[in-house]
Amino acid sequence: MALLEVKDLKVRVEEREILHGLTLTVNEGEVHAIMGPNGSGKSTLSHVIAGKPGYEVTDGQILFKGEDLLEMDPNERAAKGVFLAFQYPVEIPGVATMTFLRTALNAQRKARGESEYSTPDFLRKVREVSKSLNIPQDMLKRGVNVGFSGGEKKRNEVLQMALFEPSLCILDEMDSGLDIDALRIAADGVNALRSPKRAMVVITHYQRLLNYIVPDVVHVMSKGRVVKSGGKELALELEASGYAQFEDAA
C-alpha cells in the first residue's frame, strides 16, 4: 500500500523554484534512497514533507496514508507518523532531553486520542531504547543535544525515531559529520527499526551510508526532479560514474 505519494510537486523558496515537478511513491515496508548532487533539492523535499516554514508549494500534492499532508501543521504530521531525522539537529539549552522526549511523545499520543504515558512506563521505554543505541543515561539528563558530538546528536535522532514509532522516517544526510564508527551505530539503530509497516526515505550524497542501510529502491535527483530510479545497484553505479551524466539528463 502506498504510504507516501508525492505528485508533480513544485516548490519555491523566495521566488526561486527548487522542485520542478517531483513525483515519488513510497510503499509500506520499503526503504528508498534519494541520491543526488548538492543543490538538487533533496533536503528541500525532506523539509516540505515535514512542514518546515519558508517553502511555497506552487503545484502538486503530497499524500500520506491517502491524506493531504500539505494541509497539516508540522506537529499534526508528526502525530500521523511522519518523522524527519535532521541533518543538523538543533541544540536546545535549558530543555532537558527527558522532558523534551516525554512532552513530545505525549503530545503525539494526545493528538491521536491515545492515553499519555505514565512516568514509570515512559522511563522504562526510554531506558530500553537508549541501551540498545548505546546512549549513556547522563546524556539524557543534559539539555537537548547540548554539547553532544555529531554522532551523539544522530543517535539522539534515532532514539526519538525508536520512541515515537513513526510509519515514515526521512533521514536527511544522516552520514554528514559522522566518522565510520558513529555511522555504524546510527545505521544499526535505523536497521533495527525496519519493519513491514514502516517506510524509510534515506537522503544522502554518498553511497557509503547505503552499505549500512541497504535500500530497496534508489532514486537519483537532479535539478529538482527524480531523473532515474532503480534497485540498490544504481547506487554503486553512481559511485563509479558520478552525477554528471544525470545533470545533462535533467
Binding site: P74, A78, L84, F86, F100, L105, A107
Partner: peptide, 18 residues
C-alpha cells in the same frame, strides 16, 4: 528551535512554552 519541536509533535504554543 520552534520547528524542531513542532516536527516532534509539539503544537505551536506548547513548543513556545517549552
Amino acid at each position: 528551535l520552534l520547528f524542531y519541536l513542532k516536527a516532534r509533535g509539539l503544537p505551536e504554543k506548547q513548543a513556545q512554552a517549552l
